[in-house]
Amino acid sequence: DESNKPILLPNESQSFERSVQLLDQIPSYDTHKIAVLYVGEGQSNSELAILSNEHGSYRYTEFLTGLGRLIELKDCQPDKVYLGGLDVCGEDGQFTYCWHDDIMQAVFHIATLMPTKDVDKHRCDKKRHLGNDFVSIVYNDSGEDFKLGTIKGQFNFVHVIVTPLDYECNLVSLQCRKDMEGLVDTSVAKIVSDRNLPFVARQMALHANMASQVHHSRSNPTDIYPSKWIARLRHIKRLRQRICEEAAYSNPSLPLVHPPSHSKAPAQTPAEPTPGYEVGQRKRLISSVEDFTE
């Protein structure tokens, strides 16, 4: 099969070098950035008060330690540790928490760990991170309901609301924008112990962030949302095809390698009803078989 044979790379090609550099910018793992907010007593309706908090309760602090690993920003190499735009020179604080497994990295933009500057009256330095995160974990210690939209931002799609209760338990629920209701189930609340709260809140936030990324990708319907490693695979396959075309153009005697095509017509299947918005969006999480067989 010609399409699977190794090909020689061009010795000097600026377009090839640019493509390789672009490939280096696509990590081999999925990345997520999640905002974390603490809401104190009497702050449920005040964005400024929430963003001005420099610490929270003892249970909130224990919750943070379970979310991930504490890292010092100045020691991080952005090409190895995903920071979601946090500055490593102290502009966004000294520490944050991050978490990773074999296929993804997540960083938490924690408002109480970011510096509260006197010259920044409206807390814009914090909002440029927190307001651009799709998902926020809100530790609501106010005793009042927290409403979506209290923290203004164009991309605040989903809130994971943590409400501490007695007996070391917590109520965990989801809020989302109306255009996200087909992807996020907000109907079920959970009672979770303090011990298990970081794991549950983190998983709910990661799932909500993946759904938000799919939702946000609708602005470019021709580019369905893939995982990062599938995006790398697609980029490599496009690069291979372009090299083959350039080689055939410079030397017409060489065969032009095309991806294999299936001449056999697909079997006719009964027509199915058109899937609704929710089903269609969830299918976009699934990769096409052509990603692996071309």
Rank of each mutant, 00 (worst) to 15 (best):
S3W: 07
N4G: 14
K5G: 14
P6N: 09
P6M: 06
I7E: 09
E12P: 06
E12T: 05
Q14W: 06
S15R: 09
R18D: 14
S19C: 15
S19V: 12
Q21F: 07
L22H: 12
D24R: 04
P27Q: 08
P27A: 07
I34Q: 01
L37D: 00
L37W: 07
G42Q: 03
G42R: 04
N45H: 06
I50T: 03
L51V: 03
L51D: 02
S52V: 01
S52A: 14
N53S: 02
G56A: 02
Y58E: 05
R59K: 01
R59N: 00
Y60S: 00
F63S: 00
F63R: 00
G66D: 01
L67A: 00
R69G: 11
I71Y: 08
L73T: 13
D75N: 14
D75I: 05
D79W: 04
K80W: 11
K80P: 14
K80M: 04
D87E: 07
D92G: 09
F95E: 05
F95R: 04
T96P: 03
C98G: 06
C98T: 13
W99M: 04
W99I: 02
W99A: 04
H100E: 15
D102G: 06
V107N: 06
F108Y: 04
F108I: 01
T112Q: 02
M114P: 03
M114L: 05
M114K: 04
P115H: 07
D118P: 12
V119E: 14
V119G: 13
D120W: 09
H122P: 08
C124N: 15
D125H: 15
R128L: 07
R128A: 09
G131A: 14
G131K: 14
D133E: 06
Y139D: 00
D141H: 02
D141E: 06
G143M: 03
G143K: 07
K147M: 08
L148E: 15
T150S: 05
I151H: 02
I151E: 03
I151P: 02
N156W: 02
F157G: 04
V158M: 05
V160E: 00
V160W: 01
Y167C: 05
Y167S: 04
E168Q: 14
C169N: 05
S173I: 04
C176R: 02
K178Q: 10
M180D: 01
E181I: 06
V184F: 08
D185W: 01
T186D: 09
S187Y: 03
A189I: 15
S193F: 01
F199Y: 02
F199C: 03
F199P: 01
V200A: 02
A201N: 00
A201I: 04
Q203G: 03
A205Q: 00
A205L: 01
L206H: 01
V214H: 15
V214P: 01
R218G: 08
P221A: 06
P226D: 08
I230R: 12
L233A: 10
R234V: 03
L239V: 06
C244Q: 12
C244K: 05
E245V: 08
E246G: 14
A247P: 11
A248G: 07
Y249G: 08
Y249C: 14
L254M: 11
P255I: 05
P255L: 05
P255R: 06
P255F: 06
H258W: 06
H262E: 15
H262M: 14
A265I: 07
Q268E: 13
Q268M: 10
A271F: 11
P273T: 11
P275I: 09
Y277C: 11
Y277S: 14
Y277M: 13
V279N: 14
R282E: 14
R282K: 13
K283P: 11
I286R: 10
T293V: 04
E294A: 09
E294Y: 05
E294T: 11
